[in-house]
Design a protein around this nucleic acid. Structure first.
Lengths: 132, 132
DNA sequence: TTATACCCGACAAATTTAGTCGTAAATAAT
DNA sequence: ATTATTTACGACTAAATTTGTCGGGTATAA
């Protein structure tokens, strides 16, 4: 409960790694996977997602790899989590209205308050804070 | 990711329900399960855990049930979550040192910071806030 | 004695997460 | 051109976790 997934973990590791690179220097999925002992294929998926959202940029072919193209200060953690995993909420009823008990439910309001607190906390935290 | 479990959800529903009772009035697992349309057996387990930790008290036998015996103001959400699910941390390495990559890992410090932020947020939030 | 209600561990089903594989496309180097 | 390297991506399997069920127990009020 309240755990982040491996994919998010791997994405953070990769971003932190990329941030350490000079200028236009690239890092490959293989390089990162080996350095941190994580499964390359899974890491690759995380990197591809980040590339699709233009957080990083992919360069194909030999001597290709990835590099940061967005200032980590400009991406807050709510956005980052949602890039990696879709809508963030501690309960599905926060965004999915398919709950059968909505009328009987006696904890909707408090649940929403917890949600909002978590979101607002992550809103104020940027990728730069995390990958400093 | 970052989701609370059903058990926690059911515990919150039950606590909120118990809080609405007068004085020494009891509520049974069956009554709660039916009213909110949730599986009785699973709810029962949540209630039993709360009883073991003396958040509520169980009365056996016919006309038995549960009642609150601890002021919800005195239980913060960190404690509540840990009663229900054990140690709270967004990654296992927060409390479990069995990680192979500890030395290579480049995100330990930031992960710990996120953890601490979440914990401190839940430290300041009590069951009373949630079941008002 | 009986019916009701909590207690609890073991099990099974369902869902989610983690990891793998095969194939394709781009491209630098030879 | 061919080859080697690297990203892209969907399909698949495996593992782990969560969710739900079952059976047998204890306590106790009526």
């Amino acid at each position: 409960m309240l755990k982040i997934t491996r994919k998010v973990e791997y994405a953070l590791i990769a971003l932190r790694h990329l941030k350490g690179k000079q200028d236009g220097e690239l890092a490959t999925a293989k390089e990162i996977a080996e350095q941190y002992g994580i499964p390359q294929e899974l890491l690759a998926k995380a990197l591809q997602q980040l590339a699709r959202e233009h957080v990083i940029e992919a360069v194909k072919g030999p001597s290709g790899g990835y590099k940061l193209v967005t200032d980590p200060n400009s991406i807050n953690m709510t956005k980052f989590f949602e890039i990696m995993e879709g809508p963030m909420g501690i309960m599905d009823c926060y965004f999915d209205s398919g709950c059968e008990q909505l009328n009987a439910c006696n904890i909707r309001t408090p649940i929403n308050r917890i949600n909002d607190s978590i979101r607002s906390m992550f809103d104020k935290m940027t990728l730069a804070d995390i990958t400093y």
